[in-house]
Design a binder for these strands. Structure first.
Lengths: 276, 276
DNA sequence: CAGTGGTCTAGACCACCAC
DNA sequence: TGGTGGTCTAGACCACTGC
């Protein structure tokens, strides 16, 4: 890496070096790094410089500081959140993204878990109000939950439903009812979502998100706004997700062939998902 | 701001305060903030503390430092990159994401521009090799470009095409040919892409990306890997995008209604997502 | 040249944790 | 109690910009 003309500051070089040591196993996952004093001595710099280098690794999610204990290397690998439409998979109905991730988490030997923080009526945030086409004073049903892999929080998800929808699908008020798979009771109530949009942003976490997701102010989160519409174009659900950026890969897949070929009856296509 | 039980450090509080002043117009866009010395005096802290606070604002893209001049408030608002499938729009063919963004940039009164950095044969990175199902030694056509809004870089995009594809569509070798809209010549050559996948990550930029996209080490980028497949499931193109995270909103939209018609009954959803 | 931010240091005090 | 990281300071030197 002959960085001509771009002399990197010491803290950046040290961060890169430590990152390499993590990659090659010199600093194994789940184990604390040498203390900042020790590293300062090794590299012949002040502790402040080491602290700044570690700050970069914390921001990128490579390490996590445990107060009074040390700075340990992160263990969780990236999880894939698959939002492949059924056109691209030939399955009947794609599972909601969270559920797809659940099976991946299980596959990693971890236990996916969902905590419900709140299920009840509320006045939604402005974004939701706008999408649902309601007024500021209108109330909606909210289902707020947090997902975990073992004990590590992986995601916050808040779903909002207009009250007319809830009236036709009272199961939504049950804590056990939807569980992320709210599309099943909705479809059973004749409210099948058929069109979806999803906006993805990346931003710094709020204080609440830092607390709930165990993040630092310098780490970033994916923020998605997922909207499900009925055949008639009415919004059924607005779901906002907040996910630590270093934990996830968002996978989208779609298929524009449907209007070009006759419906495959019975026999399925050999269109398998591409290898990764 | 009654942050009970969570005393924020001074630099975080100052960052929040400055962010609020940007939002309310006290510090207008495009104008330098007061110097760090001045801010240190105003808040009664050392310059290092101010520097750290500003560091947070730089990481989130709220301000941008110009050497020797000062720290100016960012002017560019977020751009939406719309990847809505035609099922959701009923248009004949969705424009490629970059083109959709171009019109939005124009709408903001800015001039979209594309620089071609490289068009030619190369040995692709491992990710591309794997997706294309070729060997490490195989060569492909690469089209590397950088997009701008006026003079601000907004995106790096590298497209890779297998040589057999290029043989059937020689226009791809022309610098003017594809211009992000490579699907047109491909379709003309009988290579219509019909299925797509896109993986979205967020990560810190490489040194090259920092240089090209005018980013700092603490800012994050969206990294997407976009793959286009033919009807037969053969990969036509792998396109990797790198976008400053603070500049973009990625919008996905799709429509699952097409297969809904022949099966209106709410019968059991047996078929599940295919294993990966 | 003066003003800007970039970086680094030595030293200090604090909160937290394990023993 | 000793080790860990969190934060802050005063002071210093540097590179870059614009006058």
């Amino acid at each position: 890496m002959t960085t001509i003309g771009t002399p990197q500051p010491q803290y950046a070089q040290i961060a890169e070096l430590v990152r390499a040591r993590i990659a090659d196993g010199t600093y194994p996952r789940g184990v604390p790094l040498p203390s900042e004093d020790r590293l300062a001595e090794e590299f012949g710099v002040s502790r402040v410089t080491i602290n700044r280098a570690i700050g970069l690794l914390r921001a990128s999610g490579d390490v996590k500081v445990r107060r009074g204990v040390g700075t340990v290397v992160r263990t969780l690998p990236r999880i894939t959140r698959d939002v492949t439409t059924r056109h691209a998979t030939d399955s009947r109905q794609p599972p909601p993204p969270s559920r797809a991730a659940d099976s991946e988490i299980s596959g990693m030997g971890l236990r996916p878990r969902t905590d419900y923080r709140e299920v009840g009526e509320t006045t939604p945030p402005p974004v939701v109000t706008r999408i649902l086409g309601i007024t500021e004073a209108d109330r909606v049903l909210v289902r707020r939950r947090v997902h975990y892999a073992d004990e590590d929080p992986t995601e916050m998800a808040d779903s909002y439903y207009p009250l007319p929808v809830v009236e036709r699908c009272p199961d939504l008020r049950d804590v056990d009812g939807g569980c992320g798979g709210a599309y099943v009771p909705l479809a059973a109530a004749g409210l099948t979502p058929v069109r979806f949009t999803e906006d993805v942003d990346v931003r710094v976490p709020t204080e609440e998100e830092q607390r709930v997701l165990d993040l630092e102010p310098t780490q970033v989160v994916f923020h998605t706004v997922h909207v499900a519409y009925t055949f008639d174009g009415d919004p059924l659900e607005v779901c906002m997700h907040v996910m630590p950026g270093h934990l996830w890969t968002l996978r989208y897949g779609w298929d524009d062939r449907a209007e070009e070929v006759p419906e495959p009856t019975g026999g399925s296509h050999h269109a398998h998902h591409p290898a990764r």
